[in-house]
Amino acid sequence: MNKTETYECLGGNDPLATKWITQKQYERLCVKPDEVTLAHLYYSPKAHKAGTPLRPIFSGLKHPTIKISKYLDELLRPLFDKIALKTTVTSGFEVIKQLHEWSTHNLHKDTLLCAIYVVDLYTMIPQTEGVLAIKKILSRFVLKNNYFSYEDQYYHQIRGVAMGSPLTLTIANCYMFFFQRNIVKQITNPGGIYVRYIDDIFIIINWPTQHLHKQIDLWNNIDSNIKLIAQVGHSSNFLDLYVENMNGHLFTKVYRKPSYEPYYLPFNSIHPLHMKKNIPFAMFLRAIRYCSTFKDFLDEREDLRMALLLNKY
Rank of each mutant, 00 (worst) to 15 (best):
K135V: 03
T104Y: 01
R140H: 09
K82F: 11
S91G: 12
I125V: 15
K86E: 13
K67I: 09
R77E: 14
I134T: 05
V95A: 07
K86P: 02
K86D: 15
E101F: 08
V119N: 08
C114T: 12
L85E: 11
V142R: 08
H105R: 13
M124K: 09
A84I: 05
K67A: 03
K97I: 02
V95K: 09
L79D: 09
L138K: 03
K97H: 01
A84T: 06
K86R: 12
G92H: 12
S139M: 11
T111W: 04
L72E: 13
L85K: 15
S69Q: 04
A84Y: 04
Q127M: 13
D110V: 03
K86Y: 01
K97W: 02
T104A: 14
E74Y: 12
K70N: 10
T104R: 09
V118E: 01
D81S: 15
V131A: 12
Y122N: 06
E94S: 09
D73R: 09
A115K: 10
I96N: 12
A84K: 06
T90V: 02
L99G: 03
A133N: 06
W102G: 03
L79F: 12
L79P: 01
W102S: 07
V119P: 04
P78Y: 05
V95D: 00
L72S: 03
E101D: 11
V95S: 06
L138T: 03
K70V: 03
M124N: 14
T111C: 10
K82M: 08
I116P: 05
K70C: 11
Y122L: 15
I68F: 02
E94R: 14
S91L: 06
L132W: 05
D73V: 02
I66Y: 07
R140G: 08
Y117L: 01
F80W: 14
T87E: 13
E129I: 02
S69V: 07
R140A: 14
